[in-house]
Design a protein around this nucleic acid. Structure first.
Lengths: 224, 224
DNA sequence: CGTCTGAAATATGTATCCCAAATTTGCAGG
DNA sequence: CCTGCAAATTTGGGATACATATTTCAGACG
């Protein structure tokens, strides 16, 4: 069965994604007041899953709870984009250092495989190439965090930045930037295979700064 | 009124604190299976607040949800303590840099006040002195993160480390370490007041490494 | 005209019930 | 005695009902 359950194994997750997407897209404006009841009706579910979603989004900083019974969409600073890249550089650089020390043979093999996948589609000529690169890129970064063997770090990364944002920005890269990025991935994989934390960390920080530069060409103030 | 209600202004928060404390203390062993029903009965509340608490703790990495209907206390790596300090150094160092640029006059005044409070109780002679120092210390660190004006960073910090752990470790500090720590707080406040990101960041990183050294004297592998 | 007070409307927190899915148990067969 | 399968129990997700705290708004008073 491709679709095992109708709505069971979703529901709360759906509320979470929906509300978050509305905040990111601007459908829910910054500072707008939210109530569980109204969100329930809009989403067609009861308050229980909506509460879960609000808790999560509050914890992640998308929603703020003011004193008492007032809940609002958070206001995002103009330099949110800069912050995301700054924080990514800190955390992923650290993750790469740890990965160079802790990664298993399987981790290293998978990182090499993913960097090869990225290479094989660079420069991209078709939309599928873009998709493949994005997927492999995302898997690559996630694998490094996993290889760092730190559940705390994994949890942090999951909420540190919006993966979708990174994927979207890929389309704006020039051929030279894409080739550079593919080279970075290969280098990071090799640094981890060489068990060199300093190299791996430095390469990852370079990679993220280059991505920031490439992504920041047009809009300095994207949403969150 | 100093004491508004007996148990009203808590309940779900209470469940969260109680479960978390039991995990940290070891009353709930690593890998132990948890059920909402049993926790409800033990804590004398209904399942709803327990669910909230479990959500939160899962998100923070204290509890893991396995496939299906199995929920367990997470297993913590041996070097969890090291990781927490590493991550704190990264994030709080960054927060201090931003705070030096973004802090309001009120932020700066409050940071100075808090560092004075810490000074006035150092070295501590009574249990209340310890309590005051702990409270002021926690408020100080939180204020810096707030002053960084980054909701994302605030959210990250809230789950990056266990405040209770920091408080506990304070009792092990020597007089010299406590005086050094008080000096660090004052210096950080002044660096921010001087609007010097590099100074503030470096001072905070120094402070956290010193705290790590002081805290790590006895057990290298505390809980989380 | 502005401000304060209090009552109604509104929002969240908590308890309880129901349901679907998963885990455990127990029985039958090899 | 072990294995396999199905019934029974357990578990977590969702909906609803109720209690309590907060917000709002209108009207009275200065």
């Amino acid at each position: 069965m491709p679709e095992p359950q109708t709505t069971k194994l979703a529901a709360a997750e759906q509320a979470y994604r929906s509300i978050r997407a509305d905040i990111i897209s601007g459908a829910l404006a910054e500072g707008e007041r939210l109530t569980e009841e109204r969100l329930s009706q809009d989403l067609g579910v009861s308050r229980t899953p909506v509460r879960d979603a609000i808790r999560r989004l509050t914890h992640e900083g998308f929603i703020v709870r003011q004193s008492g019974y007032t809940t609002r969409v958070a206001r995002f600073p103009e330099d949110e984009m800069t912050q995301v890249f700054d924080i990514r550089q800190l955390l992923e650089g650290y993750a790469s250092e740890r990965a160079a020390k802790m990664a298993s043979a399987e981790d290293i093999a998978e990182l090499k495989r993913l960097s090869d996948v990225i290479w094989s589609h660079t420069p991209p000529t078709t939309p599928e190439d873009f998709t493949r690169i994005s997927e492999a890129n995302e898997a690559f970064h996630r694998r490094i965090v996993e290889a760092a063997r730190s559940p705390r770090l994994t949890a942090l990364m999951s909420m540190a930045f919006d993966v979708g944002m990174v994927v979207r920005t890929y389309r704006r890269y020039s051929t030279r930037e894409l080739e550079r990025s593919a080279g970075h991935h290969r280098e990071i994989a090799e640094a981890i295979a060489a068990r060199s934390p300093d190299w791996a960390g430095a390469a990852m920080r370079t990679h993220i700064r280059a991505a920031q530069s490439a992504a920041g060409k047009s809009d300095a103030a994207a949403k969150p």
